[in-house]
């Protein structure tokens, strides 16, 4: 039972990541390949604040999300000035840079040894040590994220995002500052990814750079594409299926030395098949131009 709840917690965290990336990729049409960098920054900020300064995870989560949003400015700044393939490559590169900072700045992050013993969340003095209580917390953040993203994409601001996706030059011709909007999208996406990173860190209580590799970014992107580009329910479905499905490999009794590459192979194959057969995903409205 605890195992099932654990899968649901992880799925919840991935839903937040997928939704926030969908805002950038699916709604605005920016092919960002470095989303794990933002959750990495959120996770490390909040964990370090809790470990070194004894800050409550709630405040840590908020600061972590804000620092991630700030990094969204730094990462978004060069990225939004590029198009298509080059934007993909630049965000990819920034993902590698953040990962290698986490790995090599040993005096701050302890590098590959990781940060153990990260304290968990507590609500009104009650420690959320049971998994079901943590699931409720994650569920709360999932609902907040879904609500926020829904509001954003249905607002006039969201319409501008879709207009950038469909025809950037036309929306510029209508007097919209597309560069500013693209940067804002990166900041919002980074903010929510920072929340997800922080939730992950305080749940697992241990983080190391290997949780935030470029492969992780690709996995989140795959969830966005699989579920559907520019679809909120699609992102939820995509994240849940792609988190739950590989767990089934475990039930087939595969040792982890086979299950781990097998899972990645399925992801790789799925990406190829999606691109060949259905690049907009199962519920999507948009395909890369």
């Amino acid at each position: 039972m605890d195992y099932l709840l654990h899968i649901l917690v992880i799925a919840g965290i991935y839903i937040i990541l997928t939704l926030s990336l969908n805002l950038i990729v699916g709604y605005t049409g920016l092919p960002a390949l470095g989303h794990a960098a933002f959750s990495c920054i959120g996770a490390y900020t909040s964990s370090l604040l809790a470990l070194n300064m004894g800050l409550s995870p709630w405040i840590g989560l908020l600061i972590g999300a804000c620092v991630a949003a700030l990094s969204g400015i730094i990462i978004g700044y060069p990225a939004v000035r590029l198009r298509g393939d080059y934007l993909a490559l630049a965000t990819f590169g920034l993902g590698v840079i953040v990962y290698s900072i986490a790995k090599n700045w040993v005096s701050l992050t302890r590098g590959p040894m990781g940060l153990p013993g990260i304290p968990g969340f507590s609500v009104l003095g009650f420690q959320l040590s049971e998994i079901w209580s943590y699931l409720l917390l994650v569920l709360f953040f999932v609902i907040v994220t879904v609500f926020a993203i829904k509001r954003i994409v249905n607002s006039p601001f969201g319409r501008i995002l879709r207009s950038i996706r469909e025809d950037e030059i036309a929306s510029e011709a209508l007097g919209k500052d597309t560069t500013r909007h693209k940067l804002l999208v990166f900041i919002i996406g980074a903010f929510f990814a920072g929340i997800a990173g922080s939730l992950y860190a305080h749940y697992i209580t241990f983080i190391d750079p290997s949780s935030f590799t470029v492969m992780e970014s690709i996995t989140i992107l795959l969830m966005v594409i699989f579920g559907g580009m520019g679809s909120i329910s699609g992102s939820i479905v995509g994240a849940v299926i792609l988190v739950v499905f590989p767990e089934l490999l475990r039930f087939l009794g595969m040792p982890s030395s086979i299950a781990a590459p097998m899972r990645q192979m399925i992801y790789g194959l799925l990406l190829v098949v999606l691109m060949l057969k259905r690049p907009q995903g199962i519920m999507g409205a948009y395909r890369f131009k």
Partner: peptide
């Protein structure tokens, strides 16, 4: 097959990523 569909550059890029991940893990397997 992607050329036959006139797919965009990004679709090619992501598909090639998929190939990369698939084959790399095949070697690992």
């Amino acid at each position: 097959p992607l050329r036959q569909q006139n797919a965009s550059n990004l679709i090619f890029l992501l598909a090639s990523f998929g190939v990369f991940i698939f084959l790399q893990n095949l070697i690992q397997l």
